[in-house]
Write a protein that binds this DNA or RNA. Structure first.
Lengths: 252, 252
DNA sequence: GGCCATCAAACTGCATGCAATTGAGGCGCT
DNA sequence: AGCGCCTCAATTGCATGCAGTTTGATGGCC
């Protein structure tokens, strides 16, 4: 069977799919930060399609939780609350335990080398931008999910992994990204060895540690984000005066 | 806070949301069987909107896995394979274990009575149509998920529950539906008592037994469904003659 | 009678146009 | 200067129109 990208997802249909994939990638690489505006016109123009299509793509992305749609308002990249981020990780842990449980001891030689190749790529990207490292780390998990041959599982793991990726860009410390490449290698090893509970434990602690490293601030924001983010800057503007907040065009 | 339906889902926006909800309900109540055609025109006409809107709604439903979209083809209600059905249940089990783990011992009095009221309703619907019973049983689980206050978890549990509901209509024996009302009561009791592992076990075995009761046929279909379904009828049509297959308008 | 080619109706893919809503800047008032 | 109102450009919500594809039905041919 030819490796035509899964025909069942509406995704791969046509232009809509292209836009979705592009935006998804831009979002998880933080080229589009949470809160960034996504006007239908601009998207359409940028991708050479009409608003109708851009709109449809935004709808799909919204269904995945990557963008927020408010009636009569410009769509924006989603800005999950800290609690939602934590919830996403909890769900992700359960789903990925399921993945490795199904995979333990069942990987073909080809699959193992594919995984190893991916981790090697992660290694090489170590000195590159954080954004790329994070994307690669996420894609490792998606690659794993793909090997289960369960379309539903793939979809959910992908979605939730992307969401986690998004939250990482919101809440994680600058360079905490992922020194977790070794943990990926350990997971592969355990999968090959075929010890279900061992690999489930590894995956659990791997994701848990990523989450804990990333989601460090228990209550970083209250009202909304902007005010708190700017709070440190609010004292001693230039001479005892409170700085008048400038334009504030959240995420250009 | 007013109980306005979650503002974040694009769903509740407007006409699209109405159509989605209507179709979802029709599908899980089997008014629309798997394979049923869903032409944009007809939907638009039926709901008094343009094709554009109907199309958008179909897109959302496809993202949830309830309908299948193939390029240039009429959309149809999804027809999950047996394996996909099994996978969906596996995922559902993990997700709902998470739900009850978060809920154990944390339900308010109001929530408990809401749950009891729902189960009572299930009881009353016992003599009604199977479809309604199944829908109510599914909604019990969604109600539970809602109480976690985790939008992401709600979304995933809802989706996967609807999918399972859909598969039930495909693979379950006529009246196997759910005598599982008692199990629902047991889960409520365990939740109130607050024993995490107890209630997780209950939920696990509850869903597992529903799945096993429903997904009985390990390999009921090979090529596609129609041929196998008709196989028993293929011998001795009316006089040693093979019956000429009539129109066969899958799901009117 | 059964099978294949041709054709018309049905349907989707997509762009565009128009009305309604938003929010941002400008103006006047205090 | 500060505050609020008002107007207007920007943007979304939705319907319609046209072009391309699929479906399935009719008619000719074996």
């Amino acid at each position: 069977m030819a490796p035509r990208s899964a025909s069942k997802t509406p995704e791969s249909s046509d232009k809509v799919g292209v836009i979705c994939r592009a935006l998804r990638r831009a979002i998880i690489e933080q080229a589009l930060a949470p809160g960034a505006k996504l006007p239908e016109d601009s998207l359409g123009e940028r991708f050479g399609v009409s608003r109708t299509i851009a709109r449809h793509a935004l709808g799909q992305l919204a269904a995945e939780g990557l963008v927020e749609l408010r009636r009569n308002r410009i769509a924006v990249v989603a800005t999950p609350s800290w609690q939602e981020a934590r919830d996403a990780f909890d769900i992700r842990i359960e789903l990925e335990r399921l993945v490795v449980r199904q995979l333990a001891g069942k990987l073909t030689k080809n699959q193992v080398s594919e995984l190893n190749a991916h981790v090697d790529a992660e290694d090489r990207a170590r000195d590159g931008s954080d954004a790329v490292s994070i994307r690669l780390a996420t894609e490792f998990h998606i690659l794993l999910a793909n090997m289960t041959n369960s379309p539903i599982l793939v979809r959910y793991v992908s979605e939730v992994a992307y969401r986690c990726c998004l939250t990482l860009s919101l809440y994680s410390r600058p360079h905490s990204s992922e020194c977790a490449i070794n943990e990926h290698r350990a997971i592969i090893a355990a999968l090959v060895k075929g010890d279900e509970s061992k690999v489930m434990g590894l995956m659990h602690s791997h994701l848990d540690s990523v989450a804990n490293r990333a989601l460090v601030a228990p209550a970083p924001q209250r009202g909304r984000d902007l005010l708190d983010i700017l709070a440190p800057y609010a004292e001693e503007g230039e001479g005892g005066r409170v700085v008048k907040m400038p334009k504030v065009v959240r995420a250009r």
